[in-house]
Design a binder for these strands. Structure first.
Lengths: 300, 300
DNA sequence: GGGCCATTGTGCGAAAACCTCACAGATGGC
DNA sequence: GCCATCTGTGAGGTTTTCGCACAATGGCCC
């Protein structure tokens, strides 16, 4: 009476990490194992399921359609588990920062060593979430949104970076010359964490797009971007998140980027900030200023 | 940059099974391991989290409050994973029966060997779900409900068992003598899979209960029953599901049971049943008739 | 209270799963 | 063609997990 004939859970974890990162090497870093371990786990999972989860050239893997579906389910499942875990009563955390997963992965975490170097005695604990800000368990939150939205009463918002974004897609997707019309004719990809992305872009560019042939929605930025890399359509990609994929040619942005209405904002309780909170906020502002602006509007 | 510092996943799986079964021995059966393995996994999970997940005498364990929360999250998470798994294209299933998880665990699975013995050449594959009936992937569905509800168009319903139910609780919970008033004053537990349970009971007994001090809702029958066993309140327990817990004194039912408006029903496509479907339906009817009725209305 | 039953806890050795290391293979870019 | 960047894999070691057998615990019944 085997309920739950699930595949090995460690293989699922490895694949989930791969799904989020899109590359085995970085997934392996996250799990503190070698890339070989991840490679094996993913392979054994595919064997066991009898379904290919990855495809494409070995140095530019993509998720297949069933792979994308599984990866998304896994991410949601692990998120659920994380939320269900009891907090041990005895651990004290330092500066509690909450941030959206993709922003953490692609922008904050790579820069965090700089902060730790500068302030080794200020412990920072990152918590990744897409939920609303709750100062009961947060000292500083980083959120994305139009100025003034999503900020709870009694909170102070410090925008520290422009939110440049532009349509991105797989290199081979655009058969004809890059143009607004050609892009508009592709399936359009959305993310639940920032649904107004496309309408913001229309607002900033003054362009009104016709309805796309297909709309598709994802729970997280990274799966939307993976779907774009897999050639499923065109996504509105934030510059900071796609920089690397553009550099290695996994994605292209033929229309360039525009600075959005939305800004990336540090949210703190109003007044009476503790020293660590101030330090971190100021560091964010400095890092934001130091982040290079994207190429704007190649075509527009 | 350790995202997801999750405890060992195998320990989580073991604990999830324990949470559903309420006992390590049967959880171990489900996982095809010995009870010792489960015992160790649960223990190691508690050590790692630094939080007790179980409590009570060792031969009558219960979940603690954080344990209940974690177990529910895990069940939901594993359900999600299961749904996200791609189906291998090449496997052919036999008679596809869908059934609610708790009914499967407590009633169907223990009796299934009888069917297999009688019809060894009719392969049966069980699928557990709380969702609606879809004949695209189901040959026969077992559901619980008032006659005529939840049955899709073009389907035939064959009730095969009465749905006896009664208030159940932990033995120590009732300080005073058992009475309707005493029971009504306790926190009341509900399950999402059958919310009308209490109003059905009121209907059948002619009793109108006052509002309880607390209402609490669970995703599944088993967690509602585990919560009842843990002394969190009084649940409306279906006779078939609580029989064993009553026998070993883990729960008591001071007001006995009444037969409900609801019936347990086999749902099949209308007309032209295949032989395996007919065999299985008839077997259900026979098994239903052979299931002993509960003690009715001790107090009422 | 003593024996019985059901259930969980544990020491030890075996088995399986998993990982690392090092190198090979693949592919795209220049 | 060569370099840079990833993934695939063979061999061997390490860690995790498990089975077995027995001990311990607590309820129940006479």
């Amino acid at each position: 009476m085997a309920r739950r004939p699930l595949p090995p859970l460690n293989a699922l974890r490895a694949f989930e990490a791969f799904g989020r990162h899109g590359r085995m090497t970085t997934a392996a870093d996250e799990l503190f194992v070698t890339h070989g371990a991840v490679s094996r786990q993913v392979r054994s999972l595919e064997d066991q399921l009898g379904v290919r989860l990855t495809e494409g050239p070995k140095n530019r893997l993509r998720l297949t359609e069933p792979g994308l579906k599984l990866a998304q389910a896994l991410t949601q499942a692990f998120d659920l588990v994380e939320q269900g875990l009891p907090k041990r009563p005895d651990v004290v955390e330092g500066l509690r920062v909450t941030v959206q997963p993709t922003f953490a992965m692609k922008w904050l975490i790579p820069r965090l060593p700089d902060f730790v170097d500068a302030h080794p005695n200020v412990p920072v604990s990152l918590h990744e979430t897409n939920g609303p800000v709750d100062f009961a368990d947060t000292d500083l939150a980083i959120r994305l949104g139009a100025a003034g939205t999503g900020i709870p009463a009694g909170a102070e918002a410090t925008p520290f970076m422009q939110h440049y974004q532009g349509p991105v897609m797989a290199p081979g997707l655009l058969k004809e010359a890059a143009s607004v019309e050609a892009v508009a004719a592709l399936p359009r990809l959305h993310t639940k964490t920032f649904l107004p992305a496309w309408s913001e872009w229309e607002l900033r560019t003054g362009i009104t797009l016709p309805r796309p042939p297909v709309d598709r929605e994802f729970d997280h930025y990274f799966y939307m971007l993976e779907a774009a890399a897999a050639g499923l359509g065109v996504a509105m990609g934030p510059w900071g998140f796609v920089q690397r994929d553009l550099a290695i040619g996994r994605l292209v942005a033929p229309l360039g980027f525009v600075d959005g209405e939305a800004q990336i904002t540090a949210i703190t309780p109003r007044g009476g900030l503790t020293r660590p909170v101030r330090l971190f906020r100021d560091w964010l502002v400095a890092q934001g200023a130091a982040t290079p602006a994207p190429p704007t509007g190649d075509v527009l």
